[in-house]
Simulated scan of single mutants.
Amino acid sequence: MNLLTFKGVRASLGQVRVLDGIDIAVKAGEVTALCGPNGAGKSSVIRAAAGLLPVEAGEVRLSDVAIGRLSPRQRAERVAYLPQERRIAWNLPAVEVAALGAPFLSGEAALAKAAASLEAVGAGHLADRGVADMSGGERARVLLARALTTQAPLMLADEPIAGLDPDAQRLVLEQLKARAEAGAGVLVSLHDLTLAAAFADRVIVLDRGRVIADAAPITALAPTVLRQVFGLDARWVEEPDGPLLAARRTQ
């Protein structure tokens, strides 16, 4: 089942067209990775899917309902959103920040679910610490726990591994994969093509607001696409832990 569908979506930021006729779908039980250079439209797709970027043409649907027909509460029940921005305005304890992901539960139930989400992302020991007193990586885990606490059928994650150490990057992607294996749909934007190939079921390559490829990872990130979109001479090497990208910049 498609949890998210874009049909001919166009959108702009100011005078700049950021999405130009986008047709994509995100299915339940799959991790779909958005890949592309800076400015390709990855964050714009995710913001439009969350109802935060108005569309000029086309349609965004959550399950079978146009997003514009859903109230903020209905969107919140269907979508968990992890933004790229990791700033938190108040120095709340981590467990209370994570509990904000479950606004429709009672206080104790929300805190219990938040505590479980913090444990899942390796941040259980941070439950009572103020988020302003944490490192950027620790805060990223807390925000992921908030998104996991939502338990919505669709997860949107915008560059969730940016700035994290390798162990934390894999932990985050493993949690997103686990959500998909439990039946959710996951749409995640990634710059690391090797990790996208290792964790995603499908990769959508964007460039200048358009879909260039939409297929299984190695097919979507074929050498011709890597050369055209990323300016790389590259090939995939099969390793025991998954495909590894061997690449150099084109001259």
Rank of each mutant, 00 (worst) to 15 (best):
N2V: 08
L4D: 02
T5H: 04
F6L: 11
F6R: 07
K7P: 00
K7V: 02
V9C: 04
R10Y: 10
S12K: 13
S12T: 09
G14Y: 01
Q15Y: 07
R17W: 00
R17A: 14
R17H: 04
L19D: 06
D20V: 03
D23F: 05
I24C: 06
I24E: 01
A28R: 13
A28Y: 02
G29I: 05
E30C: 06
G36Y: 03
P37V: 13
P37S: 12
G41H: 04
K42C: 11
S43V: 03
S43K: 08
V45L: 13
I46F: 05
R47D: 01
A48H: 12
A50Q: 11
P54M: 07
P54S: 08
P54E: 07
P54H: 08
A57E: 15
I67E: 10
R69M: 12
Q74H: 02
A76Q: 04
E77F: 03
R78Q: 14
R78N: 09
V79R: 06
V79S: 10
Y81A: 08
L82R: 05
E85H: 12
R86H: 11
R87V: 13
A89T: 10
N91D: 15
P93C: 09
A94V: 12
G101S: 07
A102I: 01
L105D: 14
S106R: 15
A112I: 01
A114H: 07
A115I: 00
S117P: 01
S117V: 00
E119P: 07
V121A: 13
V121I: 15
A123E: 06
G130S: 14
R141K: 15
L144Q: 04
A145E: 07
T149K: 06
T150Y: 01
A152C: 10
L154N: 03
D158Q: 10
E159N: 13
E159A: 13
P160L: 02
L164M: 12
P166F: 02
P166E: 03
P166V: 01
Q169R: 15
R170D: 13
R170Q: 13
E174W: 00
K177C: 09
A178M: 04
A178W: 01
E181T: 00
G185Y: 10
V186Q: 11
V186I: 10
L190G: 12
H191I: 03
D192F: 00
L193P: 08
L193G: 10
T194G: 15
A198P: 00
A200K: 08
D201F: 07
D201T: 05
R202T: 01
R202H: 08
V203G: 12
V203C: 15
G209D: 02
R210K: 14
V211L: 09
D214S: 06
D214Q: 01
P217F: 04
P217G: 09
I218N: 10
I218S: 14
A220R: 11
L226S: 02
F230W: 11
R235F: 14
P240S: 09
P243L: 06
L244I: 02
L245V: 07
A246T: 00
A247Y: 14
A247N: 09
T250M: 15
Q251T: 05
Q251S: 11
